[in-house]
Design a binder for these strands. Structure first.
Length: 466
RNA sequence: GUCCCGUUCAUCUAGAGGCCUAGGAUAUCGCCCUUUCACGGCGAGUACAGGGGUUCGACUCCCCUACGGGACGCCA
């Protein structure tokens, strides 16, 4: 039997990190077992479903690289099939029409709550004859005795009393089928073998198993993964900041960093923190996922992002960085080569946004000084060393890091100054205070012409300050 | 309210009855490296929710309590 998993979001918003993690687990499970990963769009809620949301979800999956093998399938295209099953149920006496007015249902619920009972439909219309042409819903006849037991891949054995369940609606008054019915039919028709989903669905599982049994089918295996909480331990929501996967894209996160972070949330493999996609596929096991919800921690995500920024191929990082450079108004196509700048600057960036700022100075005509930095670094005392370095640079024919290194150190020696007295103002003159790598490396990438220009400008600035 | 589920450092986690003086990672702090900022290296503090059992022995098994989350919809 080939493994078939699925991701089945409802298109009522963007792809959020919780959904992304569930999708990742599902995808990993399929990949690990050489199976198929199916994407299904659960859009039976006509009111709230939008194509923008579908696109947003697709976009998020693509960015993360969670490619699906089949789909996307839309539930709205499958109404005939759902109705077929509902009609069969009706014929076989496994479902019935119900015309209980809302008022009756509300009252029932209130009474049950007052009696400290779980609110549930009382089966009032079970024996009644409701004519097909009057407004009605269809309810599934749920067994009222016995227990539904299943072995969940993450929770272990889970049992629900049938007496806790009621006759749920499977077709609305407007004729549209409802969630618990459609998932069951789809998972069956799409031959899903392993249903990996958020644990907010745990309570739906016994109902779905009962429907499946009524169809004479065997239930798939289930794995309910705990949800993700915000930093404060409360359910993740917009007030926690970025929740949408694409938001992370825009904020300069690498997809592999988010993936790595997400896979470690609720799952681990010994002491290992860094996982390539291949390692995830090889090592991940849904059975090892924790049962408890975990809190999303941006600090750790940031650490992983930095890790990938500094250890990925600089050429690749440069490609991802380019658009962000453009946003800062510089053109990274000009020399120096962006990948060289990235190679030098990557260590100090936690995001591509940071990195863009760090790299932009190498492409600007005019750099800005921070007031505090200028006050500290550009004093009359530094005029002499700056001038000297400038002269030597101007005379330098072979533009190499080694020669620049020699110039800087030579100047310090000649003037009998400590390295810092030469290096600090020089670095400030060249970068305007932006952190960068070795001074000679920084000068080298900045280029001869720009170096001279920037030193001149610093000297001018000092003169103006008097 | 009822049902279901969960609970190890601030956070993510290791732990399958003796390996635990509870390990790793992030964050924090300190030291080292260093022409800056980082990176890197080394080090520090911080946790088994509480109470009862079972056992020679419990973070690990059982029960109760507390706390947290989920579900209870003509949403998915």
């Amino acid at each position: 039997m080939t493994v078939r998993t699925r991701f089945a979001p409802s298109p009522t918003g963007y792809l959020h990190v919780g959904g992304a993690r569930t999708a990742l687990f599902s995808w990993l499970y399929a990949r690990k077992h050489g199976g198929k990963f199916v994407l299904r769009i659960e859009d039976t809620d006509l009111e709230r479903s939008t194509t923008e949301s579908v696109n947003a979800i697709l976009e998020g999956m693509t960015w993360l690289g969670l490619e699906y093998d089949e789909g996307p399938f839309y539930q709205t295209h499958r109404f005939d099939r759902y109705n077929e099953v509902i009609d069969q149920f009706l014929e076989a006496g496994k479902a019935y029409r119900c015309n209980c007015p809302k008022e009756r249902l509300d009252k029932l619920r209130e009474e049950q709550m007052a009696n400290k009972q779980k609110p549930r439909y009382d089966g009032h219309c079970r024996g009644q004859h409701v004519a097909p042409d009057e407004p009605h819903v269809i309810r599934f006849i749920n067994p009222q005795e016995g227990t539904v037991v299943f072995e969940d891949m993450v929770r272990g054995k889970v049992a629900f009393q049938n007496s806790e369940l009621d006759d749920l609606i499977i077709r609305r008054t407007d004729g549209s089928p409802t969630y618990n019915l459609t998932v069951v039919i789809d998972d069956l028709d799409m031959q899903i073998t392993h249903v990996i989903r958020g644990d907010d669905h745990l309570n739906n599982t016994p109902r779905q198993i009962n429907i499946l049994k009524a169809m004479g089918a065997e239930p798939p295996r289930y794995g309910h993964v705990p949800m993700i909480l915000g930093d404060d331990g409360a359910r993740l929501s917009k007030r926690h900041g970025a929740v949408s996967v694409m938001q992370y894209h825009h904020e300069g996160y690498l997809p592999e960093a988010l993936l790595n972070y997400l896979v470690r949330l609720g799952w681990s493999h010994g002491d290992q923190e860094i996982f390539s996609i291949d390692e995830m596929v090889e090592l991940f096991d849904i059975e090892d996922v924790n049962k408890a919800p975990s809190a999303f921690n941006t600090e750790k995500l940031l650490w992983l992002n930095q890790h990938y920024i500094k250890s990925d191929d600089p050429a690749r990082v440069a490609r991802l960085l380019s658009p962000h450079m453009g946003e800062l108004g510089v053109d990274p196509a000009e020399p120096p080569e962006l990948k060289d700048v990235v190679a030098m600057q990557a260590d100090r960036a936690k995001s591509l946004l940071d990195l863009a700022v760090l790299c932009a100075v190498f492409y600007k005509d005019e750099i800005e000084y921070s007031e505090k930095g200028a006050k500290k670094n550009l004093k009359t005392a530094v005029v002499e060393p700056l001038n000297k370095v400038k002269e030597k640079i101007a005379a330098l024919e072979d533009w190499s890091q080694e020669n620049l290194h020699a110039i800087i150190h030579g100047t310090a020696e000649e003037l009998d100054l400590k390295m810092g007295k030469v290096g600090m103002p020089l670095r400030f003159a060249i970068t305007g205070g932006i952190a960068s790598g070795d001074l000679d490396h920084t000068l080298y990438l900045t280029g001869k012409e720009a170096c001279i220009k920037r030193i001149d400008r610093a000297l001018e600035y000092i003169q103006q300050q008097g």
